[in-house]
Nucleic acid binder design. Structure first.
Lengths: 234, 234
DNA sequence: CCAAAAGTGTTGCCGTTACACCCATGA
DNA sequence: TCATGGGTGTAACGGCAACACTTTTGG
């Protein structure tokens, strides 16, 4: 016996919801689909799962193909399985969301896919159920970032407190008091102050911080509490 | 064109991690697998996804077949995809965890599958990667129940505060102060005190409570905070 | 010297914890 | 009447939110 003979077999794809932060705004990387159906329409980057590949490996491969990056934070989001979500042939899609530092991203590679970064509130119409996937990913990002320090995955190695605050404010579409914010993040003990300052965005300059990688790993599951208060939402 | 011609197609199964509460303990429902390979070994209840079925529908069907229940709380857990997780043929497994009131469960149906309830700390060796699935489900249950009132899905319509406390203590393997516990749950406004008492388990009797279903739906995403303090862990 | 952003402390409030006694009842 | 489990109040503490002024420096 070489298989479970009478069962139906399916196509399985992975799709990546790729978030990036450019120092100002949280963005989403989309491509223009290169084959039919829906050729030329905006779409998440995806690909079929190959024969000897786990979904995780497939998602990493797809992400690498578009961005040139490896060792990126990725997390399985959800398995989408509506039998008619792809009109050509039934295809399940296992989605992954990825967080990348936009500055490390290689722009030239993505030209092949006609890729572009979009502001989160300016995402165009997407093919199939990709809009739903993006919405779910945004929600999960907010949920998870309220409890775990994952947003650091979006930042370069050195970053300033004002940059970090802009990022959190972007994710939650809220504004925070900078005194309370800095006290809260510093109280986690995850940040190490550097001697240099970032002098681009202000005259006085803001001190750089680095993540304490050892503590980051051990405290990743320690619950934080970055959920904005309802009355502070913009 | 009737498909994406050169891509590999896979078998896809769903497996259900079924939690139940009997008033005393949180338990897991397992079956003795009825076909090769690993026939007769302990396993999660599962089944192949059929041609026109979404994963959600398939998981519901599988759960119904074993328990006779419908409208059960179910949630997608994770897609497991190691290419060699099933030795006979590559099969991905989309897992769902379910929470049921053990008293509503129809014992006679499950006899066909040689099903049995196991205490969480006495789960036998399981086939394939099912042990890993169970571990992930336990962790997710703890995580989610710390933030959302999902544990009510394990209780009958009417329940007492002592019963509820036993449930939370079982899930977190911790003990709570009953005064603080009752204040906390009542402060959510989700519970409605009944006039009748439950008189089986004590002489004095304990008042029944019901869920306020309207508030349950609207406040489901309001974060609670049932995470036990580290120093209270047994 | 002035505009623009960085940086820093204190106070009040509220939610959480710790803790102990009385109540109702069946046997 | 006594043993068993149910039910309740208060005080201390700690964490969080609100809030405003000083510092630095490039132009």
């Amino acid at each position: 016996m070489t298989g479970y003979s009478h069962q139906k077999r399916f196509l399985v794809a992975v799709d990546c919801i790729i978030f990036g932060f450019d120092g100002q705004q949280l963005k989403l990387l989309l491509i223009q689909r290169g084959f039919e159906p829906e050729k030329g329409k905006w779409s998440l980057m995806g690909g079929f799962v190959e024969k000897e590949e786990s979904f995780e490996i497939a998602a990493g491969r797809v992400l690498h193909k578009l961005t040139g990056l490896e060792n990126v934070y990725m997390e399985q989001l959800y398995a989408f399985s509506d039998p008619v979500r792809d009109p050509i042939e039934r295809t399940a899609s296992i989605t992954y969301f990825a967080l990348i530092d936009i500055n490390q991203y290689k722009h030239q590679i993505s030209k092949d896919y006609h890729a572009e970064w979009f502001q989160l509130n300016k995402v165009p119409k997407l093919i199939f159920d990709h809009t739903e996937m993006v919405e779910m990913a945004k929600e999960k990002l907010r949920y998870k970032a309220a409890l775990h320090p994952i947003l650091f995955e979006l930042l370069p190695e050195k970053f300033t407190l004002p940059q970090l605050q802009v990022l959190y404010e972007g994710v939650y579409d809220a504004t925070f008091d900078k005194r309370n914010f800095s006290r809260k993040v510093l109280s986690t003990g995850l940040l190490v102050k550097q001697k240099e300052k970032e002098k681009e965005s202000s005259k006085r300059g803001a001190f750089y911080f680095k993540l304490d990688k050892r503590k980051y790993k051990t405290k990743f599951d320690a619950f934080l509490n970055f959920i904005p208060n309802p009355h502070k939402l913009k």
